Simulated assay, not measured.
Amino acid sequence: MKVFAIDLSVCNGCYCCQIACKDEHVGNDWTPYAKPQPDTGQFWIGLTEVVRGHVPHVKVAYTPNLCHHCDDAPCIEQCKAEAIYKRADGLVIIDPEKCIGCKLCADSCPHNAIFFNEQLNMAQKCTGCSHLLDSDPEEWSVPRCVDQCPTEAIRFGEEEDFADFIAEAEPYRVEAGTKSRVYYKGLPKKFIAGTVYEPTDKEVIIGAVCTLKDEQSGETFSETTTNFGDFWLKGLPDDRSFTLTIEKDGHQKVIPGITTDIDRGLGDIPMDLK
């Protein structure tokens, strides 16, 4: 059974996956796999770009999203025309010759990966480029989006070959419970960052130990400020309240009530070492 393995730590937001999908499907009729994708309005693989934090402590997260080719696909269950089916290799296909345009599949998809083509009156989505995989397996072993990814952030293949990756991966939307066949590593998690400086000398403080303590569980996260006085505390749980303690040369600064409802850049933090 095929899977997509997506490593967000090496995705640089080049949009090659999205462009390759357009190149393959816009203006091309691949019946019985899919009718042509519209020029605009649909991205069968779409790259979401989110700016996180506060200037100057900012990161950009890129997340490719496509049909998850779920093992428990609600779209298949909801389709009254029996136009949606799962192939033996795990890919889910909407038969363009059977689709009656009822939109039930699009409404039921928790991954927002099914689109409606008003002109053709049918639902459409990623096919895993199954027309290529079937036409010439020796030349095409992966979909176009995978073939064009310059950093190999998106890979495709047999589930057993990605066993180690899958063991470290996590669902994009765990609450969906659809047994997705798209696995992600490096999904964005909350961070708290800042720059520590000495206000009298107006110099950054290097080597200060910055420790976050979860005010509810007592769990701690710790980093040391860099040569620029910066600290980045990453991989934090959502919607928690923390106390930040900064320590250097016997001096201490405590900042309570920092929450992770959003990614937080705390800016410049003065700390008196005199």
Rank of each mutant, 00 (worst) to 15 (best):
I205Q: 02
L104G: 07
C16T: 14
E77Q: 13
K86H: 06
E223R: 15
I262P: 03
D95W: 00
D89C: 03
L273W: 01
V204F: 05
K248D: 05
V174Y: 07
A176R: 02
D214H: 01
D136C: 05
F228I: 05
C99E: 05
K213S: 13
F231C: 05
N117H: 11
C67D: 06
F156C: 11
K253G: 03
K248M: 10
T195M: 12
G267I: 12
G186P: 06
I84C: 08
E152C: 07
D263I: 03
E139F: 03
H57T: 10
I192T: 09
Q119K: 14
C75H: 00
F116Q: 07
Y15K: 15
P64Q: 09
T220I: 11
F156Q: 05
T195S: 12
E170P: 07
P36A: 10
K234T: 15
V209P: 00
V26L: 11
K98V: 02
F228H: 12
N117R: 08
C105G: 03
G229I: 02
D29Y: 06
Q252P: 01
I76N: 02
C11I: 03
R181P: 04
Q252W: 00
V92S: 03
G257S: 12
F228V: 08
D239E: 12
V10N: 10
D214C: 04
F4S: 07
D7L: 05
F242T: 08
F4G: 05
E170I: 08
P171W: 04
W232E: 10
I19H: 09
F162S: 09
W140M: 03
R52S: 06
L91A: 11
P36E: 10
D261S: 13
